[in-house]
Computed example of a mutant assay.
Amino acid sequence: MKKRIAIYGTGSYSERLLKWIQYRNIDVDICFFIQSKVDELSFFDRPIYSCSKIKDDFDYLIIAVSDKYKLQVLDNLEAIDIYEKIKEKIVSIDEFKILAGWNEDVLVDVPIQWVSDGLEKVGSDYGGYWIDRNVLGEKPIVLSFGIGEEISFDLEMINKFDAQIYAFDPTPKAIHFMEQYKANENISFFPYGIAKEEGEASFYLPKNKEYVSGALDTREELEVIPITVQMKTYSSIVSELVAGSTIDVIKMDIEGSEFDIIPEILNSKDNSVKQIVVEFHERFYPDGISKKNKVLKLLNEKSYLLAYNDEKEFTMSFVKRK
């Protein structure tokens, strides 16, 4: 018999949960959604109720909101008449995944493993990353994948450490944006992206023309019809540009391709990368947590230790153990 579930929340967390349920073919009956303030009658063709309107006719009530709102949600539920009857049925998204038998889709808890007095955030609040300055060479080499229209990290690496930046982005807006930095001797920009395969590739731009970032695979917020861009593999980029050199930092903001590219880097025959800083995009995929877990496991196996985890900006910084 199908389990009957109710979901508290009608935002992005609920949408990702529904996509995961569909992707993993979880056989459940979604009864209704709950919102503190009901502005709409339905969500994904299911009714939306306020807390005071719900009845004890479900097997699980899944809290699908960010950590910021979880305490408020629990307070709202504790205030209703049937709370004592339903409190044992209230679960988090991760708890529900475990109950459904998909432990691999629960994000592994990676502790901070690299402790250093050299850790600092380089770049703006939005576009910055944490690095360990104590690990940098005299004139550090940085491979910066995914530029968009925000290079505060790259510019501050130059200003503070005289870094040599090799920047890559096939997005038309990024190519136009980087025209202004042609005269900067510390920046070499290349109008192609990084991928597992060399050559031309289909690339999907955002539907919202105010946005910049595109991706190799389409999704709801991206155009259906792609443009064609040039891509190169990690091994080609290294052999053409920095062969035989130590790479001090690899920075990645590549809209989900990191799940393919990080293993390519880590398994390359001449991996001389000291630090990897990356924005993860597991939120774009129904099995994104599983993808991220595999990459985190491989980073650990290859002696890359977590130095900083900025959950708000989805970024993580890793330093290779000597």
Rank of each mutant, 00 (worst) to 15 (best):
R4M: 08
R4P: 06
A6D: 12
T10K: 06
S12V: 14
S12D: 14
Y23S: 08
R24H: 10
I30V: 08
F32S: 11
K37E: 15
K37S: 10
D39N: 10
E40A: 14
P47V: 00
K53Y: 13
D57F: 04
D57H: 04
D59I: 04
L61Y: 12
I62H: 07
I62Q: 02
I63A: 06
D67C: 06
Y69S: 09
Y69R: 13
V73N: 03
V73W: 06
E78S: 15
I80V: 04
D81C: 08
D81Q: 12
E84W: 08
I86T: 10
I86R: 06
E88Y: 13
E88F: 14
K89H: 08
I93D: 09
E95D: 09
F96K: 04
K97Y: 11
I98M: 11
G101Q: 05
D105L: 04
D105T: 05
L107H: 05
L107E: 10
V108D: 13
V110L: 00
P111K: 13
W114M: 02
D117W: 07
D117A: 06
G118L: 03
K121H: 08
S124L: 13
D125A: 09
Y126L: 09
G127K: 06
G128I: 02
I131Y: 08
N134S: 12
L136G: 00
G137H: 15
E138F: 08
P140F: 12
S144K: 06
E149Y: 12
E150M: 04
E150R: 00
S152C: 01
F153M: 05
L155I: 01
I158T: 01
I158N: 05
K160H: 11
F161C: 12
F161W: 13
P170T: 09
T171W: 03
K173V: 01
I175W: 14
Q180P: 04
Y181R: 08
E185P: 07
N186I: 00
F189Y: 15
F189G: 02
F190E: 05
Y192K: 03
Y192I: 03
G193D: 10
K196R: 15
K196P: 04
K196Y: 08
E197I: 15
E198H: 12
E198Q: 11
A201W: 05
A201K: 10
K207I: 13
G214P: 05
A215F: 10
L216F: 14
D217P: 02
E223F: 13
T228K: 03
T228V: 02
M231I: 07
S235V: 14
S235N: 15
S236P: 05
S236A: 11
I237F: 14
S239E: 15
E240K: 10
T246N: 09
D260Y: 12
D260R: 05
I262A: 01
P263A: 08
V273L: 03
H281Y: 09
E282Q: 03
G288I: 00
G288P: 00
G288A: 00
S290A: 09
K292M: 07
N293P: 00
N293D: 13
K294E: 15
V295T: 04
K297E: 15
L298H: 11
L298K: 07
L299M: 05
E301R: 06
L305A: 11
A307C: 02
Y308A: 06
D310V: 03
E313M: 15
M316F: 10
V319F: 01
K322P: 14
